[in-house]
């Protein structure tokens, strides 16, 4: 993608006025028309690439440059080379954030996608009030993340939260959900799942509806059970969509930010006293805007970028195999 960025630039300034000067060579308007034919598509797609260059490519490159410095926010800047990366790799707090991020990702995304698949399958059947249910599962998506997080954080409150009240009915002691990693991970995962399961289900549902009906008819005639049809026809046919859903979930999960921040209740970005639920995105913000160490934060941002790439490659190799053992 990045390779294409440069191409529109030279094409643009070659306006019609310039071309008209060379027209005397004899081939007439033909050259202009051909130029028009070749240049216009580039010109038309260029806004995207220009925006991408300004808001995507430039920050990417600039972050890399900053990450090579001891770059204090509103302060001194000294060139360090790769020292920030070396320090980061040895930094327990960073790896703690990575573990938290992966932990939350695993316990939120896997149930979420399985549930979304089941929901989509159910909604693909003939049921009463289908439109109502289809809209219903998408509804959580229109609420703001912050609102979701605030409400869930109250539900998970130590003293007056509904979840502790409910658990209390079975004699469970009041849990301070923020206090331990695994309880915090569960709490945060429920927020994510509540909001995103329906979204993924709708995408999978749309994909299911493109599967030709005659495949199912043929399978029925051969005596395949609905369950078998689901695993042998639906899931394999969904593969491209599943790959997409998994990619997007991976990117979203690894850059998780708003939910844990709101769950903490104050904007220190520490993710609990010992960073029990500090994600990598929080770590970056904390380093840059709480400890004012932009260089270190930039290095962490690049590490996150690398992590996402690795995550996507792993997930791709998994999803590629779905239904592939024919």
């Amino acid at each position: 993608m990045t390779l294409n960025v440069d191409t529109p630039a030279p094409a643009r300034p070659e306006g019609p006025r310039r071309a008209s000067g060379h027209r005397s060579s004899g081939r007439g308007g033909n050259g202009l028309a051909r130029f028009d034919l070749r240049a216009t598509p580039y010109f038309l797609v260029s806004p995207y690439f220009l925006l991408f260059a300004v808001f995507g490519l430039f920050p990417l490159v600039y972050t890399a440059w900053v990450s090579l410095h001891d770059w204090e926010l509103a302060g001194d800047k000294t060139f360090l080379g790769l020292d920030n990366y070396a320090e980061l790799i040895a930094d327990e707090a960073f790896w703690n954030a990575v573990v938290n991020t992966l932990g939350i990702f695993v316990i939120s995304t896997i149930p979420q996608l399985v549930l979304a698949l089941m929901l989509a399958n159910a909604l693909n059947k003939r049921i009463r009030g289908r439109l109502f249910f289809r809209l219903g599962i998408l509804l959580p998506l229109v609420t703001s993340v912050v609102a979701v997080a605030v409400v869930f954080t109250q539900l998970y409150g130590r003293d007056y939260g509904m979840i502790n009240w409910f658990l209390g009915l079975f004699g469970v002691e009041a849990i301070e959900w923020q206090n331990q990693s695994w309880t915090a991970w569960i709490a945060i995962s429920t927020m994510i799942d509540w909001r995103w399961t329906g979204y993924n289900a709708i995408i999978l549902l749309a994909a299911m509806q493109t599967i030709p009906k005659d495949l199912y008819e043929a399978a029925s005639l051969d005596g395949a059970s609905p369950r078998r049809q689901f695993w042998q026809i639906t899931v394999p046919m969904l593969r491209p969509t599943l790959v997409f859903v998994v990619f997007v979930s991976t990117i979203g999960g690894l850059t998780l930010f708003a939910e844990p921040v709101m769950f903490e209740g104050n904007p220190t970005m520490a993710g609990g006293a010992t960073g029990q639920y500090q994600t990598v995105a929080m770590f970056i913000v904390k380093e840059a805007f709480r400890d004012f160490d932009m260089g270190y934060a930039s290095a962490a941002a690049w590490m996150l970028f690398a992590l996402i790439l690795v995550g996507i490659l792993i997930n791709y190799s998994f999803t590629r195999r779905i239904g592939g053992k024919k």
Binding site: I192, W196, I251, G252, L256
Partner: peptide, 8 residues
Amino acid sequence: MLNNKRQG
């Protein structure tokens, strides 16, 4: 605050 996980 980011209001969309995907757009994060």
